[in-house]
Every structure is written in structure tokens, then in C-alpha cells.
Write a protein that binds this DNA or RNA. Structure first.
Lengths: 213, 213
DNA sequence: GTCTATATGATGATAGAC
DNA sequence: GTCTATCATCATATAGAC
């Protein structure tokens, strides 16, 4: 057991492991998978390179864990946000809650989720294969969510869930590349995006205005 | 001058240079900036590693050229598509043309544009600095386009051009990660995305339907 | 748990022959 | 224009001391 003194800095295996993961996620995001050496990770985590192998079997093991943790956190964040809605919530509320849930987790764990968005496609094939199931589960969750909303008449009937998901998640994930918390909270961003996506960019409703005169 | 025989494969400096760029763009997209060695590029281009230095001063010079070429092609593609519109085109047509123009160039030069989307953020700072102006010019073009459309009443007045651009370009660029030409042309994709973005995901217009009875 | 030392091979870049 | 040969450095991973 580590010291029970809460003022003392914990330095057990679990804390070191976490520190390695945090450092690695940040470096992978900034420099890509191949661009980060285990020496660099170790140095920023306050260790020697060889010591990493006590905590992780290989560089691939390390990156797979980072990728999966990012997706899982976002999946959970959306599921919880949607779960808090009343059962009869309308389409606009559903969309807003799901978008806010995604953005909150995405931007809170931005090193983990960014590593994901940026390096999944360029990691070795063995890494992609190992991390695929977690990604697919999240995609399937969104497709089911959108199909359900559509079935309840809470979403345009002629929009394919897959197309909507790809457009929507693509737009949201791109915020990782430019979002700065200082310029306005996640809530503001989510409201703005949900509004644009729900109402569209058209200046007026497409049906003729009602005229009585 | 190289041979004038059109049946003979050209192998002058310009052709070799182009072959190196094409190979490098594809590899950078697949494996990231640091993940690709000059030896690997040379091998796939049918050269020895040292020979690359006749055509490019360094790995950084090579990647900067790839990044810039991707952005310039897309910028030009959108400008041409928009330029072909009649002067009084409405907002929906403008948006559709710009989206189609972006997607066409984006997906046609997908190795160059993907290298861009994937590796700009993880390239060395010196690379990002050198490639920044071209990117900013394209962003500024879109902001001006959207502001102009808004001023003509062809776009919702309460949507900030910057927000619209970030959402839109983010969504379009994400198509690089999943689009397969075999499953349906770029035109179909552009129509679908323009439709969702213009009309929104709401099942009905938000204004009450006109009733005369 | 972390260290040092090391095996084994790849890296960007340069020099000079042809 | 492309080659071969090479420099100095860095990579992942392992072994064994403490």
C-alpha cells in the first residue's frame, strides 16, 4: 500500500501508470504515433525508458489503451447525457443533449480523444485492429440513437442515420483542432452547432410565409 | 529536353519529382510524418534514398510542398465552382456549389489533402509555420464567401461565418476518412450534405403550417 | 519499481564516383 | 540525375543489478 497521508504525493504503480498515459496521449496528439519515442515519454514522466516496460508491454499496448480510453469516455458521456432526458423529449432536445455530451467528453479528455482522431488512421494495422471494436460500438450507438429519433418523428425522415452521423461527428471532432476554452465554453459551442444542424442554414423556412392580407 | 515520343515513358527531373511527391503524400497519409522514412519514399519511387536530395532539400521541404499543394487545389476548386454560378444565384445554390467544389478537389487529391488534414497538426513547428499562410488564405476565402451570402440574405443572419465554416469544413474533411468512390459518387455525397446543412435535421419547418380552413 | 547497460537495426543527411 | 558508402544519432526492446 502507498502512504495514507493525503498530502503526500502518491507514487504507486497506478499513479505512475496514469502519468505515463497522460504524457503519452499529449505527445501522440502533438507529434503522431511514430513521432514519439518511448524515451521522450519516459523523460516527461520522470522515468528512464526501460522502466516503461514494467507498466506496458510495448509501445503498441500503450497507444491502444489511450485510443480505447478516449472513445469509451465519449461514448459514456453521450449515453449519460441522453439518459438524463425525459422519455418524451423532442428531437431538438435529443440532438442538443447528444451533441453537448459528445463535445464535453471530447474536449475534456482532448489529449486522449485527439490522439484518437489524429493517429488512429496512421497507426500500425495491428493497433487499428485492436482498437476497432470500441470505435464501432460508438458508431452503432449513434446510428441507433438517430434511427430511434427518426422513428419517433423527431428527425427528418429522409436523412439517412449513417450520413447524419458521419457529418455530425466529423464536424464535432474537428473542434479539437481549434477549440480554446478561453474563447467561450463548451456549452456555447454545443448550442451553436445544434442550432445550425437542427434549423439549417437557410434564411427562411422553405414553406411560404402565412399571409392573411 | 526529354524524348518527344509520346509512347515513351517520361523520366525527366519533373516526372521523377512528381512521382516522389505522389508516393510521399500517400505514405504520409497512411503512416504520419515521422512514420515515413526517406528510404521508404525512395524505394516506392524507384530510387535510392540519397537521390531524393537532388529533388528536395530536406524531408521538411518535401512535406511542406505536399501540404501546400493540397490546400491550393481545394481553394482553386471551390473558387472555380463558385465562379461558374450566375451572379444572382440563391443561397442554396451557392452552398451546394461550394460544397461540391470542396469535396471534388478534396477527394480527387485525397493523398495530398489527407496528408494535410492528418499530419499538419503533428508536423514539426517549422513545417506548420511555413504552411500556415496557404491555409489561412483558404479560411479567409470561405469567411468572405459566407459573409457575402449573408449580406445578400442568402444565409441565416444569426449564423456566424466562422462557426459555419468550422462546422462545414470539419464535416466535409472528415469524409476523407470513410469515403469510397465505389459506394456512390462525390456528387451524391455533396447533394446529401448540402441538403442536410441547408434545410437542417428538423422534421418540419418551425413556423406553423398555413391553414385556411 | 526503477535503474543502467546494451543488442540490433533504422534514421536524416552528406560526399563523391559515374 | 542517380548511385554507393558513410556519419552520427536515434529507435524499440531486453537483461539483470539494486
Amino acid at each position: 500500500m502507498a502512504s495514507a497521508d493525503p498530502q503526500r504525493q502518491e507514487s504507486g504503480a497506478a499513479e505512475t501508470r496514469r502519468r505515463i498515459l497522460d504524457v503519452a496521449a499529449r505527445l501522440f496528439r502533438q507529434q503522431g504515433y511514430a513521432g514519439v519515442s518511448l524515451r521522450a515519454i519516459a523523460a516527461e514522466a520522470g522515468l528512464q525508458a526501460g522502466s516503461l516496460y514494467y507498466h506496458f508491454g510495448s509501445k503498441e499496448d500503450l497507444v491502444v489503451e489511450i485510443l480505447d480510453e478516449g472513445i469509451r469516455a465519449v461514448h459514456q458521456g453521450v449515453a449519460e447525457a441522453v439518459g438524463r432526458l425525459p422519455a418524451d423529449a423532442d428531437g431538438a432536445s435529443l440532438l442538443r443533449a447528444a451533441i453537448l455530451g459528445h463535445l464535453r467528453s471530447l474536449l475534456r479528455l482532448s489529449d486522449y480523444t485527439s490522439a484518437n482522431v489524429r493517429i488512429f488512421g496512421q497507426a500500425p494495422e495491428s493497433v487499428r485492429r485492436r482498437s476497432l471494436a470500441v470505435r464501432q460500438a460508438y458508431d452503432a450507438y449513434w446510428d441507433a440513437l438517430l434511427a430511434e429519433a427518426q422513428a419517433r418523428g423527431a428527425l427528418r425522415a429522409d436523412a439517412e442515420p449513417r450520413s447524419v452521423r458521419l457529418l455530425l461527428i466529423g464536424a464535432l471532432n474537428a473542434s479539437l483542432e481549434w477549440f480554446e476554452p478561453a474563447r467561450g465554453g463548451v456549452e456555447r459551442l454545443a448550442e451553436s452547432y445544434a442550432d445550425i444542424l437542427w434549423r439549417g442554414l437557410a434564411p427562411e423556412p422553405l414553406t411560404p410565409a402565412c399571409r392573411e392580407d
